[in-house]
Design a protein around this nucleic acid. Sequence first.
DNA 1: ATAATAAGTTAGATTGATCTAAATTATAAT
DNA 2: ATTATAATTTAGATCAATCTAACTTATTAT
Lengths: 219, 219
Amino acid sequence: MASPTEENYLKTLFTKADKNGEIAITELSQYLKVSAPTANSMIKNLSQQGLVNYEKYKLLSLTARGKKEAAFIIRKHRLTEMYLVEKMGFGWEMVHEIAEQIEHIDSPRFFDRMDELLGYPKVDPHGSPIPDKNGKITAKTLVKLSDCKVGDTVTLSALANSSEEFLKYLNSKQLQLELKLRVEAIEPFDQNMKIKYLRNRVEILSQMACNKLLVEKQL
Amino acid sequence: MASPTEENYLKTLFTKADKNGEIAITELSQYLKVSAPTANSMIKNLSQQGLVNYEKYKLLSLTARGKKEAAFIIRKHRLTEMYLVEKMGFGWEMVHEIAEQIEHIDSPRFFDRMDELLGYPKVDPHGSPIPDKNGKITAKTLVKLSDCKVGDTVTLSALANSSEEFLKYLNSKQLQLELKLRVEAIEPFDQNMKIKYLRNRVEILSQMACNKLLVEKQL
DNA sequence: ATAATAAGTTAGATTGATCTAAATTATAAT
DNA sequence: ATTATAATTTAGATCAATCTAACTTATTAT
């Protein structure tokens, strides 16, 4: 239905909106690398189609339909990245560029098959949730453990890397998914983190490891 | 470099040209499902870019550069079809539509990786040759099954037609590329062929079908 | 050989996505 | 409160890809 250009607008609206789901048109235009008037006229078009809430001089937001459309595009993008890494052996640095193009392929079967081959992942290795085939997002947005502060209590929810060595490393420290962790201290020099879990177990984790551990923050 | 539209023109010029590498502009426009004037103006553009030989009222042909460009696009298309069938489990009938879109992805690494994962195939699921990463086609001399004699043992290597019905027909008889076939008998009246394959499977194939099956003769 | 038909070309319009320049409205600063 | 600045919108142009209508050239049939 939507052109690749329209899809890019919806995707950016979705991912770059603030906590209220809103974004200014100029900021949007910068993300999309087009001029403000260009974004303005495209937004009018999307508003016409019932995908974007638009009133002159006000902030933009997606309608319910717009959000659903956006979720489908994000699904296609994230599944593609996941597939390129897991099934084709690309590094995470390389996949974005390719996924930016493949996300515009119009073929539900193609993406559903990727999903199946990947085992229906709910989160990509960046910790971003992958919408399911109905456009529903079940996972929360995860953050890297390395981005947490001292005192944060979090739940280990996903891994940004699942190489055998890394899994062994985690095993040796009894680190498992769904485990609650507390950041006790961070070494300023190298960002090593002192983590407490399982009643009273304490470990020092390297910055490299913390970068690959995706966690959900406690309230 | 080339837009998806330009790529489609080059690909069609390459695949639909006659034995002399020529095609009429109207015929081209029909394959591309655009009006003749549309094709005319695009051909002028491609001629300007040095990709197509064009003189008013004459037949069209690709220049050397145009052929090379076309070969790259065909490479992308056929590798994609191959990948979809071999690595993602799609049926032959389904892959064309998806490959029509993926062939326009601009990422040599992506296609080279597919090529590698597939083991550098020289022929796609429909049996058409796949140009290598330099645009070179390792040509094969195939003969029609209908031109074979009783007692010939051959390998099914390509299809001269890949309509959905034909692919379904072949599927229903478990006829796949790379299968070894033996011509058991030929009916003098209608040239129907009795073919043995897969240990002891025997089928009678119509002259029409045998005409579309391209095979490599055993030495 | 000439007329009829088919193929190819030109002219001019349209649509989607983009731009720059200029005008308007909102926000921030003194 | 007024002014300066920033954000947004309007106006009008451009470019690629497409169309239809009309015209020209080539081919075919009588």
